[in-house]
Simulated assay, not measured.
Amino acid sequence: MEYTGEKSKLWTKDFLLVNSITFLAMTAITTQMGTLPLYVTALGGSKAVAGSIVGILGISALFFRLPIGILLDQYGRRLLLSIGLGILFIDFALLNVFQTLVMLFCLRLIQGVGNSIQATSAATMAADLIPKEKLSVGLGYFSIAQAVPGAIGPLLGLAVVEKYGFEALFRVALLLTSVAFVLSFFLSAQTPSTLFAGVKTSGGTTKALSVMKNRGVTFPSLIMFLICFANSGVIAFIAQFAIEKKINGSGYYFTLMSIVTVLIRFLFPYMMNRINQSFLICSSIVSISASFGILAYADDLMHLLLAAMLYGIGFASLLPVMNTIVLQSILDQERGRATAVFSASLDVAYGGGAMLWGVIASLFGFHVMYLFCGGFGLAALLVYLLFVGNERKCHKI
């Protein structure tokens, strides 16, 4: 692969810009994760309706991830990134105009389209910019921009709603998205001819399906699907859970998780050099599963903070490792499609998870819901052990 810039340098202008754009756009999206259920309730909707409106973002994104991955590998990254951010800008502007449950559902669906375009474009561009010898380290840093918004976004959203109301929430998201949109025009434009000199990048759907048959793509994607599916119940309903349990300061869950996530990501290069990868993955999944189990029995703020710390430790270590496995399993000219498949697994997880957990919480309560979340975490561990077993068999053959 040929990419303009210093090949051995990680912190280039474009890499800094991609990180900044991702951080701003994802923060705008995640400010709604903990607040939309409250907004739906204010508009007269139920927990199940709230789960559907939160979850439709991921479901709509699913149908666009793979086509976007194909377009990225054929036509380049920057144009599609700007288009995705433009859709988000318009969507957030309209959220303050139309304030009904039906329109909220439709605008969240459109928001999922814009988010799928910008997120897949940014992640693929980041992978292009990272030198191969620094792939896992670079992805660890980039994943800070992806993960921290999931921690501070809901906290910011709750703080804004509590002090200024829901209209201010959508204005904040609009401001963040507009800054990201402007920054996207300062990125160096790259086309497939410069990205993959001498490599044929056509193939469309057939090539995309071949990527999905690659175990190095499907297994990590499935593991992250199970983890994020479980965590969607935490992100979407932690505020309502805390209110029901009469726990004050639930927003600190996101604060602590954010701090732990950043610390672990900065330590990640040292961890990769000193800790066996399989042990790191297994211990990360166990830590995540334990956090869900603690939430199931939480009755005070200390339990919430302990769960936040364990989840932050586990997820901050797991995501960049899984992403690295995916990118090391495919050709350079397949990065857009592979990133789309990997990202789609997270979309479906957060989308479908929020819908399912809303129904389970309504029928059985949050205690049972979080126990199920822990079960999904343990299922992810079984999937990884199966993946390792298959890899060893292949190497013997």
Rank of each mutant, 00 (worst) to 15 (best):
L356S: 08
V113N: 09
A242R: 04
T177H: 03
D300C: 09
T22G: 07
L319S: 10
E162N: 13
Y384K: 00
C282A: 14
A61Y: 05
L256E: 09
N96Y: 02
S121G: 00
D300E: 10
F181W: 10
F266I: 12
G358Q: 09
L382K: 00
I130F: 00
M355Y: 12
T27F: 02
Y270G: 08
L169M: 05
R215H: 12
L195P: 09
L107V: 08
L24A: 05
G365E: 10
G389L: 09
G352H: 09
Q328R: 14
A126M: 05
G55L: 08
S184L: 01
G55C: 05
V172I: 11
T177S: 14
V326G: 05
L195H: 10
Y297M: 13
G353F: 02
V182D: 00
I90P: 06
D299Y: 08
A354S: 15
L386F: 11
Q277R: 15
L101D: 06
I83D: 03
M224E: 12
A197N: 13
R337E: 14
A119C: 09
Q190Y: 06
A236Y: 05
V388I: 13
Q190R: 15
F254A: 05
Q277K: 15
A379Y: 07
K9L: 11
A338R: 01
M355A: 14
G51P: 03
Y252R: 00
G336A: 00
K207G: 12
N19Q: 06
A50W: 02
T194E: 15
P67Q: 10
L209A: 12
V383D: 03
G5R: 00
F376K: 04
N276E: 13
M302E: 12
M369W: 08
I130R: 03
I59K: 09
I288C: 09
F268C: 07
L226N: 05
K7R: 15
G114Y: 03
L156F: 08
R78C: 04
R108I: 13
A28P: 01
P320W: 01
A344S: 15
M26Y: 10
S136T: 13
L109F: 15
I397S: 14
N390A: 11
L135D: 01
T201I: 08
S258T: 14
I288L: 10
Q333N: 15
Y270E: 14
T124V: 07
I21E: 01
A380M: 04
L109K: 04
T41R: 13
M309T: 15
M302Q: 13
V260L: 07
G352C: 05
F372T: 12
T22M: 04
F15H: 00
E6H: 10
A119Q: 11
L346T: 14
V321S: 13
L346E: 10
V383G: 07
S60Q: 02
V211W: 05
F376Q: 05
V182I: 15
